[in-house]
Design a protein around this nucleic acid. Structure first.
Length: 459
RNA sequence: GGCCGGGUGGCAGAGUGGCUAUGCAGAGGACUGCAAAUCCUUGUACGUCGGUUCGAUUCCGGCCUCGGCCUCCA
């Protein structure tokens, strides 16, 4: 089986051949740190985390770069609104972002560059664009000249005429062409700014990704990922900047995750269907959120629903339940991801199919008779979970998870009631035993009487 | 208007030119003091109209329909 991705650049699924098979480079657009991450932000985080985990299994080394945008007009506006220093806002938001993605089992990238730490590289790159005639100064700004690049628009497949026709925003008067975009803009004294050959100012939105990917991955690199909404203009402009500055190809494979909707509608604050990752982590364990997200192919539009999250949690329960039966048997071969799971993921990250195989593995485990069989099945299931980033926690911890807000019965109280029920059952007092079962059930605790005694879990 | 992506069984969601995933929910059975879990069995799915084909849900075309993007939202 070989690795293949749907490449937005060619609109086709293509075999993946890295530039350097010893080390694969991937860049994913990260968050602008002015607010809590919402579930729309979580999708690319989770999707590209699976890609990262997969690549790490297939190649000796992977360099995963995901930026932090910490200079942006939205940040400036929010800081002003909050009456807090920009640095405090970005530091706080970055920290919250890290906490959220850790809870979703997303591995940290190898490099997480901050835009403000790479202003010099951006200035150098803008200088190069000016030198090569792909940019011009106007009214304190430096703008990228779109007509200077004949094949501008190749990623999003739109012609320059179309863009001008479609422009629905008033065009700034200093632009030579309506499609031109800002590389550098002047900052007033109350705004963050850096000295540059064009005066004190700050970078435009797109230049940071061009500069930072160059810094850590080189001029040409393997994979660039992000949400579909970034295809135009962000990624298109990244390509323009990088290709024109270096005269060489930029990212070779472009992967974009589909849009995320909520209960069939576009997520927006005004519709009241806006959820942060934090909100969801209070409602369900991170792995359930993760499984819910991976239940659809990354390229498809995804409809986030409460029902879907519930189903994902039930699905995780099933997998952990299978593992619970073999808690005392050591896993065998955890380092070997089952072939079918790898094949599914290598085929353009088919996570729904991979999850189906996860369930097959759980069924096999449930049906396994000998200890040897069980050990192997357990290893296979855990290994499969490792590439998908699920089944990463202790089985009992999974079943003891309680929502943030809930005033759940303590674990000790549950154990106490279970012991009383065991006494009642010994005395054949089934009425009392059933009463206790009911009492616990009302508190969301399910009891399961098995050969090895009574176990419990929260539902 | 331009461009893009969808429409699969009760629900979610893969996939395939003929052998019809997977999970949840439903039905029946085994097991169980009860229950849960588990295992077994089970269900005339592929928007619509044409075309290509021995055969299409899968390929091609029209139509209907949903969603998105078109300058700073992942």
């Amino acid at each position: 089986m070989s690795l293949a991705f749907y490449n937005t650049l060619t609109r086709r699924k293509e075999p993946f051949v890295p530039l350097d098979p010893k080390c694969v480079g991937m860049y994913v657009c990260g968050p602008t740190v002015y607010d809590s991450a919402h579930i729309g932000n979580a999708r690319p985080i989770i999707v590209f985390d699976v890609l990262y985990r997969l690549l790490k299994r297939l190649y000796p080394a992977v360099t995963y770069v995901r930026n932090i945008t910490d200079v942006d007009d939205k940040i400036n506006a929010r800081a002003k609104e909050n009456k807090e220093p920009i640095s405090a806002l970005t530091a706080r938001t970055t920290e919250a972002f890290h906490a959220d993605i850790d809870a979703l089992n997303a591995l940290r990238p190898d490099v997480e560059p901050r835009a403000t730490a790479h202003i010099a590289q951006m200035i150098a790159m803008i200088g190069k664009l000016l030198e090569r005639g792909h940019a011009y100064e106007a009214d304190g700004h430096v703008l990228f000249s779109v007509p200077s690049m004949p094949d501008y628009g190749s990623l999003s497949r739109r012609s320059q005429d179309e863009m001008i026709a479609g422009a629905r925003v008033e065009v700034a008067p200093y632009k030579r062409n309506a499609a031109d975009f800002v590389l550098w803009k002047p900052s007033s004294d109350d705004l963050p700014g850096w000295d540059s050959p064009w005066g004190r100012g700050r970078p435009g939105w797109h230049i940071e990704c061009s500069a930072m990917s160059r810094e850590y991955l080189g001029v040409t690199f393997d994979i660039h990922g992000g949400g579909q909404d970034l295809v135009f203009p962000h990624h298109e402009n990244e390509i323009a900047q990088s290709v024109c500055a270096h005269g060489q190809p930029f990212a070779r494979y472009w992967l974009h995750n589909g849009y995320l909707m909520v209960e069939g509608e576009k997520m927006s604050k005004s519709l009241g269907n806006f959820f942060t990752v934090r909100d969801l982590l209070d409602q369900a364990p991170g792995e359930a959120i993760r499984l819910a997200m991976l239940a659809a192919h990354y390229h498809q539009p995804f409809d986030w629903t409460a029902e879907g999250l519930k189903q994902a949690r039930t699905g995780m329960d099933r997998l952990y339940l299978a593992l619970r039966t073999v808690a005392d048997i050591p896993a065998e071969g955890r380092d070997r991801v089952p072939f079918e799971v790898m094949a599914a993921l290598e085929d353009d990250l088919n996570t729904p199919l991979a999850i189906a195989h996860l369930h097959d593995l759980a069924t096999q485990l449930n049906k396994a008779v000998t200890t040897d069989e069980k050990a192997k099945c357990k290893g296979a299931l855990l290994a499969a979970g490792d590439v998908l980033g699920v089944l990463q926690q202790d089985v009992e911890a999974w079943f003891r998870w309680v929502p943030q807000a809930g005033s759940a019965l303590s674990d000790d109280a549950v154990d106490d009631l279970i012991n009383r029920r065991i006494e009642a059952r010994k005395a054949k007092n089934f009425a009392e035993a059933d009463r206790i079962r009911k009492e616990l059930a009302d508190q969301g605790v399910l009891l399961e009487d098995g050969a090895g005694g009574t176990t419990w879990r929260r539902a």
